[in-house]
Amino acid sequence: MKKPEILSNELVAESRLFKVEQLELRFSNGELRTYERMRGGRTGAVMVVPMIDAEHMLLVREYAAGTHRYELGFPKGLIDLGEEAAAAANRELQEEIGFAARTLQPLMQVALAPSYFASNMDIFLALDLYPSQLEGDEPEPLEIVKWPIADVDGLLARVDFSESRSITALFLARKSLKLDR
């Protein structure tokens, strides 16, 4: 299919965290439409499934303002300007769980709501971890939770494990480790 032609792109709202742009589009059949989307960052983001050993992964519990509760998920964060995705993944590991990885295996790049948000996240599997701590930007210490990767059902049954990106990362890691049922 031929992509629609962008007739105009205008910034219509902005906050400290978000920018909303309005796109005027013409589709190949002549239809005109106005779309709004959140303008994504230029660098992207990463999420990492850290395997502390062959059977256990590490998750973090941290406050999520969107749901106003503590959520269990995988280490994640933004890629700094000029930083490679793998370097950002290793930095986030050190900031959030106090480990670095000798092996970072790319699993997949996912879109975060492509109809409304222009941003991607690179998901990695982290293997051969070793202690290494960097200071992070979290407002409070994160709780680290060791979880058996074989207990998918137990993790999915938890109310505090609900983020779709973490669920995606879990299944991608299991597939990569050849643990699919």
Rank of each mutant, 00 (worst) to 15 (best):
E5T: 15
I149S: 00
N29D: 15
A111H: 14
R158G: 04
A45I: 02
E14N: 08
E143N: 00
Y63M: 03
M57N: 04
H68Q: 13
A13E: 14
S176W: 09
P4H: 02
R102E: 15
E143T: 12
M51I: 10
G136A: 06
A89T: 07
L112H: 02
E92N: 08
F99Q: 09
A87K: 02
R16N: 10
D151H: 08
K175D: 12
L134Q: 13
A111E: 13
L127V: 00
I144S: 07
V110T: 13
L155H: 04
F18S: 15
K19Y: 00
S15Y: 00
L155S: 03
L170K: 06
F161T: 00
A157I: 01
Q105E: 15
E36D: 00
Q109M: 11
A100I: 03
K19L: 03
V60Y: 06
D128K: 10
E83H: 08
Q105N: 08
F27M: 05
E84A: 12
E143G: 01
A118M: 11
K178E: 11
L107W: 05
M121G: 03
S8T: 12
R26N: 02
G41F: 03
P141V: 05
A85T: 04
L58K: 06
A173D: 00
T34E: 08
E10M: 09
S115C: 07
T43A: 01
P148V: 10
N29W: 06
A111V: 04
L104M: 06
S166Y: 05
N9L: 14
R33M: 11
G40K: 03
Y70C: 07
P4N: 04
H68W: 10
M121S: 07
I123V: 13
V20C: 06
F27H: 14
Y70W: 11
R37N: 05
L129G: 03
A45T: 09
S15K: 02
N120D: 05
M108E: 15
K3Q: 10
E95M: 10
P106E: 06
E140Q: 13
K178F: 09
V60H: 08
E71S: 09
S162W: 01
E138M: 13
R158P: 02
A113Q: 05
R33L: 13
L17Y: 12
A100Q: 06
E10K: 15
G82N: 08
N120V: 07
K76L: 08
I6C: 09
F171E: 06
E10H: 11
M108V: 09
A88I: 04
G30W: 09
L156G: 00
V159N: 11
E84H: 10
E83F: 02
L58T: 03
E24H: 12
V145S: 08
H68D: 14
P50Y: 07
